[in-house]
Structures are given as structure tokens and as C-alpha cells.
Computed example of a mutant assay.
Amino acid sequence: MSIDSLWLLQVFFAALADLAFASALGALLLRVWLGRERAFASMSPARGGYRRASRTSSVSALVFIACIFASLWLQSAAMSGSPILDAGASLWLVATATHAGVGWAVACAGGVLLALASGTSGALGAGRVAAAVLGAIVAAAGKAAVGHAADAGAFSIAEGVQTLHLLATGVWGGVVIAGAAAVLPALDTSVARASLVRIVSRMSHAAAIAVALAIATGVFNAWRGTGGSADVLTGSGWGRALLLKSALIACALMLGALSRWSALPRLQRTASTTDAHTVINVMRVEAVLMVMVFVTASVLSHSVPGFAS
């Protein structure tokens, strides 16, 4: 692994793409749940939350597309050996004739589908939800094809597991980040308190399922990356990054457990402003940890796997 300006830019845009992808997924889920509350109606007390979810999903999908294009541009610079500003000359060739380039192009296509599905502020119909799900799967599959899972070959089990891992972490991180940063504060009023309680409950259930899938697929990826040897965890930069990511995930899990088993039940009993603030604040800290997890994951994906080093 060579740490230079190109590597740092690749890590930055990959991390930002992961954050944008997760935010788009989380905001779309929140839109679906708020749609069941009919929060899109002009007189709904939860309308502010629905509007924020709509904006977050649309903007996040557009940021994801921009980051994927930037990553493809940087990949062209890395493969051609040309300066970053001159990489456009080889962009088309890399995008169509290399496995990594095709993966970025597929991810970009998934992002476009996500953006189209979340492009308006009206209620999400079944067709648009289906398009969003398809876009998310395509985007995750494209990103899986440019990571370490691609070493096992196209359409391999490793790529399939990584696709599921990206979707699971996207849902988990997305509902936390989009909820804490944008949607839940707009529901933190007395008239919208019932909607807040129901939305947080749905977020907790969805996150629990996503966490289980993320951990299962993450363990598989970690085992594959170490080659079955624990020595690489402390003997390589990749291994130390993996340990840091695991520690951050453990902290996020503890906060999620605190919210699910303590703060949320108390809010459901009292529906008080104090307990609502507690739930949102705990989720904000968890959101910061999830941002750090995505950044660490980007470092891992751009580092030489432990078994190889």
C-alpha cells in the first residue's frame, strides 16, 4: 500500500460514496415508514420529517453518483499512470475494458436508479420502491466488484457476500445517520411525538436485522482477508484497520443496545420530551461512530489484505 495523494483521494471518495449510499437507503426507508403515517399530507404533524427524508434521499443519491464517477476517474489515473487531471483520456477504456471499471459503471447505474426512484417529494408507490430496491442491489453489486471480493472472480460467492454486506451496513448505518441527522429532529415536537415513537421503533427493528446480516457477512470477509491466520491482525496495516473497525462497531452496537433496550422503552412509556431528546442524542452519537466505521471500511478496501501482506 502506497499512501500518496491519489490513494488518499480514493479513500475519501469511497468513504463518501458509502456514506451517501447508506444515507440514501436510510432516508428511503424512513420515507416509506412515514408514508404509512401519511406524513406527506399537508396537515400531517410529521410532514416536516417526511420532507427532510425526501430531500435526504434525493441529495444522497446524487452525491453517491458523483462520488462513483470521481472514483472511476481516480481509478483511470491509477491504471493509466497519468496525472489525475489527465485521467479523462483513459476513462472510457477503463470503464468498459477492465473489471474494476465495469464495477464502478454498474454502481453508477444503480445510483442513477436510486436517484430516479427518490426524485420527487410525493408518496412512494410500489413501483418506485421496487426501483429503489433494484437500484440499491445493483449499486452494491457494482461496489462489491471493485473491492477485495473481486479477487475471487466475477459472480463469486465472495462478491455475493460482499454485496449483502454492503446492503446490510447501508441499511444499519443509513437509518441511524439519516434519522439522527435529518429526520428525527423534525419529529421532535409534541404533536408529532406519536409518529416519532413509531418511527424509532421501526428503525430499531430494521437495524437489528441489518446488524445480524452485517456481522455474519463481516465475519466471513474478515476470515477471508486474514487467510485464517490471526497473526495478520497485528502484523499488517490492513489488520490494524480491521481491529479499529471492529472496535468502532462494538461501540456502535452498545449504543444501539442502549437505545433499543433502555431509551426506546422509556420513550414508549412516557412519550416525554426529555426521553425523546435522549433517544435522538444517543442515536446521534451512534451516527458519528457509523461515519467512522465507513471511513475505516474505505481504508480497508484500499489496503492490501492481511494474508497477502
Rank of each mutant, 00 (worst) to 15 (best):
V138T: 10
A140Q: 04
G142R: 06
G142K: 09
A144N: 11
A145K: 10
V146F: 07
H148C: 13
A149V: 03
D151W: 14
A154M: 15
I157C: 11
E159C: 08
E159Y: 09
E159L: 04
V161H: 08
V161A: 07
T163N: 05
L166Y: 10
L166S: 08
V171E: 02
G173M: 02
G173A: 08
I177K: 03
A180Q: 01
A182H: 04
P185E: 02
L187P: 01
L187T: 02
T189A: 06
S190D: 15
V191F: 11
A192N: 03
R193I: 15
A194F: 03
L196Y: 00
V197G: 00
V197P: 00
R198W: 00
I199G: 06
R202T: 12
R202W: 11
A210L: 00
A210C: 03
A212V: 13
A212R: 09
L213K: 02
A214L: 01
I215Q: 04
T217I: 02
T217K: 04
G218F: 00
V219R: 04
T226R: 06
T226G: 13
S229A: 12
S229E: 13
A230M: 11
V232Q: 03
V232A: 01
L233Y: 03
T234N: 12
G237I: 03
L244I: 14
K245M: 06
S246P: 02
L248A: 13
I249F: 15
I249T: 14
A252N: 11
L253R: 11
L255K: 07
G256N: 10
G256C: 08
L258G: 15
R260I: 06
S262D: 15
S262W: 14
A263S: 12
L264T: 14
L264N: 09
Q268P: 03
A271R: 12
S272W: 04
S272T: 13
T273P: 06
T274P: 02
H277D: 14
T278L: 09
